[in-house]
């Protein structure tokens, strides 16, 4: 009897995740930005979409590429590479825009690719290194994932700093 890959996935899915009770950890939303692999807590990632019509606005910091309308909201589009001082991104239709939501404040972040959701044990999360690619002030920690480093962003803090920069400007 042949089964499709979807059926195989459904049958392989556990009914209960009992192991999680024993090992404390969190789920992260992982995406790629240039050479960086970044992650935010999955609760802060509300939705993923494609970059629609981007409207540039004057008198904004360089990391704010403009604003987009999304489900009746006007969201600023933030280039994290510029924000982190690691270069800049170009907007194409095949890129991803994920909506980050912290408390009542939402913003759209540009990403090259979205890798998906990953559950990481807290024990695997290391303290942010000094002098890394991402400033330690914006990091919750880093995870060694084979040859690459997963930088776990402290999105509420980052959004606060960004908002402060936008406002002070």
């Amino acid at each position: 009897m042949s089964t499709s890959s979807l059926q195989r996935a459904l049958s392989a899915a556990p009914a209960h995740a009992l192991a999680k009770e024993a090992v404390p950890g969190k789920e992260y939303f992982i995406f790629v930005l240039g050479d960086l692999t970044l992650g935010v807590l999955s609760g802060h990632a509300r939705e993923v979409t494609r970059p629609g019509l981007l409207t540039p606005l004057p008198r904004l910091p360089a990391f704010v590429l403009g604003v987009v309308g999304h489900r009746g909201e006007v969201l600023p589009v933030i280039d994290l590479l510029r924000f982190l001082g690691q270069g800049e991104m170009t907007v194409t239709s095949r890129k991803r825009l994920f909506i980050g939501s912290v408390h009542a404040f939402s913003a759209a972040f540009l990403a090259d690719r979205v890798l998906g959701l990953r559950y990481l044990n807290d024990s695997a999360v290391l303290a942010p290194p000094l002098g890394g690619a991402v400033p330690a002030e914006h990091l919750l920690g880093v995870v060694r994932d084979g040859p690459r480093t997963l930088n776990l962003i402290d999105l509420p803090k980052l959004m606060q700093v960004a908002r402060a920069r936008i406002v002070t400007r």
């Binding site: 996935a9 392989a12 899915a13 995740a17 998906g116």
Partner: peptide, 16 residues
């Protein structure tokens, strides 16, 4: 993921 434990299976199917 947002649905929590109840959405686990859904998440797996979505990932597939």
């Amino acid at each position: 993921s947002r649905a929590g434990e109840a959405g686990k299976g859904f998440s797996i199917v979505a990932a597939e």
